[in-house]
Each structure stands twice: as structure tokens, then as C-alpha cells.
Design a protein around this nucleic acid. Structure first.
Lengths: 356, 356
DNA sequence: CATATTTTTGCATACGCATTCATTATGGCA
DNA sequence: TGCCATAATGAATGCGTATGCAAAAATATG
């Protein structure tokens, strides 16, 4: 009825009056490390509690020029890998006393309008998890002193920090594993062709296959999308010379490929067809799928991401830093096993050729 | 080297000087509906572009007493239903020009420390998706004029707004479906026993079963957790009088139950055992599972949530509002089919008893 | 006890912007 | 052209807090 005014909330001045001290004293009470006498502090805390006072983070940000918010840009969350990342990010950022401003659910892959928003909120750092950033924008961030971390992505010119795994080595290992398993015809269902992860995974795969004399890889595009992966699988598997081994660029698509292979085309996995995925995400571990998959160490990746952010926020230096972590090929039931090279490692079966 | 100072960024005063106008004019240029001459506006926009000016949302919030941020509290994201909610929330909130401050990844189900944070940031609204709120806290929100919406949850005393589906009717329908399918022994794997959804789903199930003379339901607790659901399934299915029909309180657990039943205990689904889930989440549709499941209309639920928030923000009135939506029992392959009652509805098979 | 040193305190100011108010420019109409 | 209504403008102020500075209080030292 009164037209929508949010009640203004208790201010530090009101608390000060109540406690019989100055506004400064109230501020100092809530500023760790500030000079304040214990008894004054106690008075202030009492008054604050009575009035239900909470420091206004907005006003604080205006003074300190720090919002204590990190923007996380994640275009889609359908692939469970990303919710996992989000959850871990939330955990670690909270531990560092940072809040998480999430940008998701925009279909156009263009992050520029989102970028405007996040700059207006003066975030202290940016994590880009499923989008890249045009080079002008990343330069603008650098100029503004805002650290940016590309998560699970890199750019050619490595001007912006990134956290990735050894995708090329991963692709190579997948190839070695499949070759050792005695496969003859190799397929690849690709992710987004513009993404660095996809290029690297395919590059390593292709390279190792070529080294073993296999130069004819059957490729279809899945764009990291479930529906497109289904289409790609149908196409690839209804060929006469269909592959007996497929490397799918991530588990999210691999699940779809397995469903199509088994239930639409009646193929047995791994007897008729071996499938290897990437990420080692939740569903890969579910026994219905049991996907043999290159793992990405999610927790350590997120740790590295937060470490880079905190470091650059603290130092003010924002030279690009690149953290590249190792994964393992986790062996399950979706692909035929090589005779050697499989070892047990804290409860998981891992493929490590040469250790075998 | 210089100890970490984020560059202050361009201010409206600088733009004003550059454009040869007052700071007020700059402000009015970026305030929709403000009184500003087209040519002045053009000058300002030009200067702003040159300098790379973006209005400081923090400073604006301080004046307007609106942060244009909505806090979303979501303890865990492992169940794909919630990432879906998050994505849709992000989409709709962006459309309303609101940002999403996410709180996730805290394991203790207690949301109170989180609550402190979110109040400090003076969010304009709160969505609680996997946590409840102590009654004092919800009263504090009401007093502060901050709308709160419980998503997929309710409290007994309905003092705080909520968006849910007809869980009781859903449970009832599942029971009717399983009875019509000729099942004899009924099991239930429960969600969090303290949650309203779980109570309602079980209540309806129990009620309809009792009406048909089945009063002995075998119950195990899964707490909406995958691992616990696995344990529950093992226990329930290794009994001598194991059920031939299980209602699992959500799909996230139903997937685990199916895996255990099939691959650990060698049961055929639906020949030996029928399974019905809840949510109609992604994996339920994957052909490996094909879970017959009560759907929750995610998009409409999120729509309702945002509508309630926008409404209460605009009006300033925050009397609790309850939106209860309808789901459908989507029939797939995880449960034996009744002879009648299955109809086709925009490409899905739906169970509607009495509709023939 | 006087003096030097340290700790604590309040005053005043600034952060970047929106908004009120008084003033000036603009356009409409006779 | 002159007069009035309206639009546009700038100066000033305040949102809630942190912080530099100087004054005051507390403590240590001789």
C-alpha cells in the first residue's frame, strides 16, 4: 500500500548513539585489527545486538574499493561437472570471506552483456568457466586491476590466467589405452570446436594414434551438447565401417553416446564398442555407465583458481598465471582392457602404461 | 610491488568534466526516465565511451537502498534438479535486471552464518532452495522488508512464501499407478525426514495405499543422498519379503537404487521390481534409466518464484504467498504399466487414471 | 610525582552516485 | 514580440561506512 520501500536498516550511527560512543568506534569494533578498547568494544557489541545491527557491506565497499565479490560466469549447468565446480568454488570463496556473484542461464555464448553487469558491481575477481572473453575485455580487466581466471579453458595468446589439465597428454593417453586394448578403428566425438580443451584433447589423441599408424579417425561434432552428441553417435555408429573405439570429448556427451549405442543400435559395450570419456564426472561412476574416463582433479583445480585470485587481489599484480594439473585415466567398464598397465590407486583403477 | 590497490575506476564526475556538464547530467543520462536533453545525453555518452565509464552499482545501491541482488541459498548441487533451477533463476532474474548472489557448498545444513552474510549485502530478496530458515530469521526478513521464497519446501506455520508442487497428490498418484500395475509389496525410500516434500510425498503414498488395503510399507531412509540411498536399497532389497514396487522420494536417489537393484542384486526392472521417482530430472530421461517419475514443472516453479519476489519488492508488502503447481506422472520403463490410464501428452506418456 | 610513550577516541572527510531544489533555457501561443 | 508553461540544468546534499589526524586518556618510565 505504501509503495514498496525497503526499510533502511540500522546504521552504525544509531548503534553509536545507543552505546554512547562515536560512529568511528562502532566501525572499529567491526573492523578486525582496528584500535579499540575491549570495554568500548563490548559496549558497542551489546548495543549492536540490541538493535540488530549488521554492517552494510555496500557502504563498506564504497570506501574500501573492494566488493569482496567474485563473479563466476558459467553459461550452462547441465553438465554435472560445472555444478561440482560451483559448489567447491562456493566453499573455498566463503572460507576466504568472499561472496559469489553468479552469471548463468544466458544462451548466447557471448559474454559481453554479462561483462557490463559484472563490471558495474565492481567485483574483485572473475572466473570464466564456460565462456571466453574477447581480448579487449580481458585487457580492460587487467587495466582495471581485476584478476580473471579462465577455468578449464585457455586462449592462444596467454594474456589471461588459466587453470586447466594436461588435455593433450590426456588425449594421448586415451589413444594409447585404446590401442593397447587392441582396437582398430577409432572415432572421436568432439566438443566445442572453438574450445582449447577440445582442440588439445583431439590433438593428443590424433597424434598418438598417428604414431601407431592410425591416421583415419572418424570425427563427428557434439559441441559438448547432449542432443548433438546423440545425433553424432547415430551418424557415426550407423556407418558400415563404424569404429570399435570412440573417444568422446567429455562424459556428459559420453553418457548420451552410450545410451544411443546400447539401446538404439543394440551394441554391447565394451564387446562391440569401447567408449572413453573425459572429466570423470558423477554419472561416469554410476554402474549403468561405468565410463572409463580421464579425470580432471576438480578440487585441486578450484583450489588453484581461488589461489590465483587471492594472490592477485592481495598483490595487485595481475600478470597471467597458468596452472596445469594432472589427471588420471580411470578405468571402468566402458572400454576393453589392455593386458597390462592397469594399477590400483586409492581404490580406483588407473591406466599407467609403462608402470604395468 | 605496490601492495595491491585496485585502480579506482572512472567516476561520473570525471565524465562530467570531460563532457563539459555537471555530474547530475551524467547521472541522469544513465537513469532511465530522467529529464535530460538529447544533445546533452549524446555528449555524455560520448565522453563516457571515451573514458570507459560504467556506473558504479555499489554507489548507486547506497543511494537507492536497492542492491538489485537476489540471494540464492542452495546447500548442494549434486542433484541435477537444482542446477536446472539455478540456470533458470539466472535467466529470469537477469531479464528483470537482477543479479544472483549464490550461497552454496556449506555442508552444515544450518543456514544461519550464511544468513548474516546475505543480510550484510542488503540483498533485495532471498530464495531458499535446499535449506529452511529458523522462524526468528524469517521474521527478521519480514521486518526488514526483504521477501523470502522457499523453493520446493514449506514450513508448518506458513509465515514465509513458498513455491511447491502438489506433493501429497503426487505420492497418491504414484501409489495408484503402482496398485493399478498389479504390485503387491510396496517400499518407500525416503528423502530428508525433516523436509515437507518428503513428508507430503510419503503421506499421499501411504494414504492411497492404505485405501487399497496395503498398510505395510517397507521404509528406508535415503536423506536425498546418493550414498545413503544405495545403502537403503541394499537393505530393502535383500529382505526375504522384498517389495516388488518402490517409490523413491526423488530421481537423484532413484538412479542409485536402480543401479544397486540391477547390477548388485541382479534384479530386472521392471519385471522383478518397479521403481518410481520424483522430479523428472535429466537422468530420469536417459534411456539407461527411463525412470517413471512425477514431474515438477521447473520452469513454472522458477517463474512463480521470481514473480513473487518482483511483486513483493515492488509493493513493499511481504505477506506470505503460496504457489502450488501441478506435476504429471511421466511414464517410462522403470515400472510395470497398468492396463489403462496412460495417455499421450505433447510427446510424453502420462498416467491419468479415470481418463481412460 | 612528573614526564614520555602508547593506546584509544572523536571529528571530519571522502567514497560515487541519485535526487531535491532553485535557476535558467526552450518552446508554444496569442 | 511578449508572456507563460515546460523542460533542462547545476549546486548542494546525503546514503553508511572507513580512515587520517589531532586530542585525550591510559600506561610506562625515570
Amino acid at each position: 500500500m505504501d509503495g514498496g520501500v525497503k526499510k533502511p536498516g540500522v546504521t552504525s550511527a544509531e548503534v553509536a548513539r545507543r552505546a554512547g560512543v562515536s560512529q568511528s568506534a562502532v566501525s572499529r569494533t567491526f573492523t578486525p585489527g582496528a584500535s579499540i578498547a575491549p570495554k568500548t568494544r563490548a559496549k558497542v557489541l551489546a548495543a549492536a545486538k540490541e538493535l540488530g545491527y549488521r554492517p552494510n557491506a555496500i557502504a563498506r565497499s564504497l570506501i574500501t574499493n573492494r566488493s569482496r565479490m567474485i563473479a563466476v560466469v558459467m553459461a550452462y549447468l547441465e553438465n554435472l561437472f560445472y555444478p561440482g565446480v560451483l559448489e567447491e568454488l562456493g566453499r573455498l570463496l566463503a572460507k576466504e570471506d568472499y561472496r559469489l556473484l553468479l552469471f548463468t542461464g544466458f544462451m548466447d555464448r557471448d559474454s559481453d552483456p554479462v561483462f557490463d553487469q559484472l563490471m558495474q558491481y565492481r567485483v574483485d575477481g572473475i572466473v570464466l568457466a564456460s565462456t571466453s572473453l574477447s581480448s579487449e575485455l580481458s585487457e580492460e580487466c587487467a587495466a582495471a586491476g581485476i584478476p580473471v581466471v579462465l577455468f578449464n579453458r585457455t586462449t592462444e595468446r596467454d594474456a589471461v590466467s588459466s587453470v586447466t589439465t594436461r588435455n593433450r597428454e590426456g588425449g594421448r593417453r586415451v589413444a594409447e589405452f585404446l590401442i593397447a586394448g587392441g582396437h582398430k578403428r577409432f572415432g572421436y566425438i568432439s566438443g566445442l570446436e572453438s574450445s582449447s580443451t577440445n582442440r588439445d584433447r583431439f590433438g593428443g589423441y590424433q597424434e598418438a594414434l598417428a604414431a601407431a599408424g592410425h591416421t583415419d579417425i572418424i570425427v563427428e561434432v557434439g559441441n559438448y551438447d547432449r542432443a548433438e552428441a546423440e545425433t553424432a553417435a547415430r551418424k557415426m555408429l550407423s556407418r558400415e565401417d563404424r569404429p570399435d573405439a570412440i573417444f568422446v570429448a567429455n562424459d556428459h556427451m559420453a553418457v548420451a553416446v552410450m545410451d544411443i549405442a546400447r539401446h538404439e543400435l543394440g551394441l554391447s559395450i565394451p564387446e562391440d564398442l569401447s567408449i572413453v570419456g573425459y572429466d570423470d564426472v558423477g554419472p561416469a561412476r554410476w554402474t549403468s555407465y561405468g565410463i572409463t574416463s580421464m579425470s580432471q582433479p576438480l578440487k585441486r583445480m578450484v583450489e588453484a583458481t581461488v589461489a590465483i585470485l587471492m594472490d592477485q587481489i592481495a598483490s595487485g599484480e595481475i600478470e597471467a598465471e597458468h596452472r596445469i594439473l594432472n589427471g588420471e585415466l580411470v578405468v571402468r567398464t566402458s572400454a576393453r582392457l589392455p593386458k597390462t598397465g592397469i594399477v590400483e590407486l586409492d581404490g580406483r583403477r588407473i591406466y599407467r602404461p609403462g608402470r604395468g
